[in-house]
Design a protein around this nucleic acid. Sequence first.
RNA 1: GCGCGCUUAGCUCAGCGGUAGAGCAUCACCUUGACAUGGUGGGGGUCAGUGGUUCGAUCCCACUAGCGCGCACCA
Length: 921
Amino acid sequence: MDKAYSPAAIEARLYARWESLGAFKPSGTGPAYSIVIPPPNVTGTLHMGHAFQDTIMDALIRHRRMLGFDTLWQPGTDHAGIATQMVVERQLNAAGSSRRDLGREAFIERVWQWKEQSGGIISNQMRRLGASVDWSRERFTMDPQLSEAVTEVFVRLHREGLIYRGKRLVNWDPVLKTALSDLEVASEPEQGSLWHLRYPLADGPGHLVVATTRPETMLGDTAVAVHPDDERYRALIGRRVRLPLAGREIPIIADTYVDPEFGSGCVKITPAHDFNDYEVGQRHALPMINVMTLDARLTDEVPAPYRGLERETARARIVADLEAQGLVERIEPHQLMVPRGDRSHAILEPLLTDQWFVKIAPLAAPAVRAVEEGRIRFVPENWSGVYFEWMRNIKDWCISRQLWWGHRIPAWYDADGRVYVGRTESEARAAHGIGPEVVLRRDEDVLDTWFSSALWPFSTQGWPASTREMAVYYPTSVLVTGFDIIFFWVARMIMMGLKFTGEVPFREVYVHGLIRDHDGQKMSKSKGNVLDPLDIVDGIGLDALIAKRTSGLMQPQMRPAIERATRKQFPDGIAAFGTDALRMSFASLATMSRDLRFDMARVEGYRNFCNKLWNAARYVLLNAAEDGGDGVVEYGVADRWIRSRLAATLERVEAGFADYRLDLVATALYEFTWHHYCDWYVELTKAVLQSEDATAAQKQGARRTLVGVLETLLRALHPLAPFISEEIWQRARASAGVSGETIMLARYPRAADLDRDPEAERELEWVRQFVLGVRQIRGEMDIAPSRKIEVVLQNAGPQDLSYLDRNRRFLERLAGIETPRLVERGAPAPISAVALLGELEILVPMAGLIDPAAEEERLGKRRRKAEADLQKLRAKTANEEFVRNAPAEVVAKDRARILELGTELEQLDRQASRVRALLAQ
RNA sequence: GCGCGCUUAGCUCAGCGGUAGAGCAUCACCUUGACAUGGUGGGGGUCAGUGGUUCGAUCCCACUAGCGCGCACCA
């Protein structure tokens, strides 16, 4: 083995081997365990969030696979309607063309080309991460069979009256020229104005003042509303005002929607351009006048001077004209929430259009019950509250999009606009008895991308056919996802899954946090703080990193700031840390927090961990090579101890996996590997293996244990660190006496396979405390590590003597001491620095080694600590209520500790007085 | 406005009714035969604040403050 761990040399080779072995396919034995991947955009690239999520899923899948489950990790990609269409349109625009130039057919063809061209990128990136998905089952939301599922769902819902079409006020994106669902609206606070406008009374002198943030919609006003109890306006209710500029008369109505406190207490009502006004309009049967076109210009419904004006221009013109007529009372600054499209970022326009909707309440009710009844469990649990909150207030879902890329709605219209829904045109004709002489025109719209995503857990398994996959892998075991798409995706999958399969789509939802940068900022291209996961795996130079972060910026003026920040944070670029280090880092981030700060220092730490493991393995394999064969094997206390620690570690690992606490899994394995196995056990074996008086059987026991524990540890680590564990396992398996093609398919170790050994733990703890005590003296007294020191033991009890007898070899090696000399209790001993191990006093004679003043200080420090502890415990146990109410073992423990501390203080005082006597000379 | 998080060592985070932990950073010593991507030892915290419950609170409850997120918004 090479001296240093170098991930690049092993990773690609191992992944290719796993894939060619077919190790990612379900094994077909054991109970099923399945996860569907949240499908990334087919033309997208892997970002940190994907890498994090994939790491979690892969760890869960590898763990269950090794436990013998029939494991399926279902991969695939999403057509991502708006996002993908926008990318291709931008390409066309850059080339001086447009989608309209191309026409629908050619444009769609073009998108498919782009999908073929870039669709493999993210899959290959997933391979680099070691994702053990079954590639042979990769699916795409626009595959024929998945499209068939979409049509099937649409037709069935329509037949049941759960999909309907109608003219409704929807969120309209005038740039993309499509309707959006409520979820795709991101409102942001922006600085605007509140215009106070005078509307003259139609039937007499005087006027009303209405306050509005959108004067350009006034031409569509069909009423002015006041609160019914508002004394100021009570008398005016039922009268009329003359709408300025338009000249129409509109009524003054009363509606409790109006807040008398706000503005003037009079609200202009524009039912066709505001959601609240729409409802007021419904209540009062007001006419709706649409004054806005699909690209947000004024329609022919308005007076001639304003027709065709873009909304911003129209606003300026209308305000100017009103001002000219003295109808603007005042304009005040006003902060308002401006609705913008989450993709285009354009200001959305509430617009009356014909759209398709899913009637959601009948679907939501069972979906709420499924979570209430625990058939689906959210982890962490509090996300179910968010889910309930949304589901209780859910509104009908606008599913039609005026795009070209997506699943076209299976509806046809005749010349009179009558609509016929069917799986195909011929089915629609047959169902409605429409002969071939009638010309039908297919609906132009496509479905919201999330409509097909909602079917993903079962459409990927072959639905609507009843397949073996549906029977075995559905419902899936767990959905791993971020909280940002609970509404978009999770809720809709639950509704659709229950509706069409009668089953929940997944039994648990593990909602992980969001990966942020080191400063807690969301990673985004525009902030210039994105990291490419593969740059952490492969490394990247500073210049290349800056180039990556600053190319293709929407706001090029950000460039210098991004460059500066990047130079500061990564002065030397990013080192090649390897996939395993990245994955371990992600696992360690997988706490229950919702914000997860990504810190490169952590990756470096786990890279070092990999190196540590690698070198420990070198040591083990070097020694295992000297295996004495079939001789007698004797396992010593250290061997028993490390097995016992391993058992304890596996208990923590099991608990971590059960609770989706991969951070605890990572920590448990890290601690065991570094602090138990490497720091202590490996060092202890050196005392045996390099000893002349250790027996062959003892050496054999150490060798077997070294390699056996290593092999088990590798299997335990494999779900988090698949590559290094496989690489070492391949080299270690012969020495360990295990067989198998790959660690991937080896059995996952269980705590129950090993025994806890309390006796060995106690004894080795004594050894550790002994060594630590001596080391502390060495460290604080600056005694060279190479220098063997003399040690005198006083007050040794029978237990100490027997421990000492068995472990002398360890103490001499790890503490760097000569064979200890025993002194009777009370007998004279040399003036020494002292370490305490219960009653036992470990004395390091000072002569020529130790500065008495330093030792006095050290003793004083320890004394202060012991004294403080003692005071606290004395006060506690003096409290009668404590003694009466606390559990007996707690009281007993505290009392025992008081005795210990008393002894310790006596010992420290005795030592201190001797040292002081020495100093006084 | 309603709801939900978070606040623990310089930084990033675990923990949790019974003696405050890790990684990184820091200081000192060390090229010791797996590993300097390392070893050994040290320093560092009134667990945001106030009140309550309790024999006992970093932990449970209430309130306050700060930070963050989601939803809904008064035109």
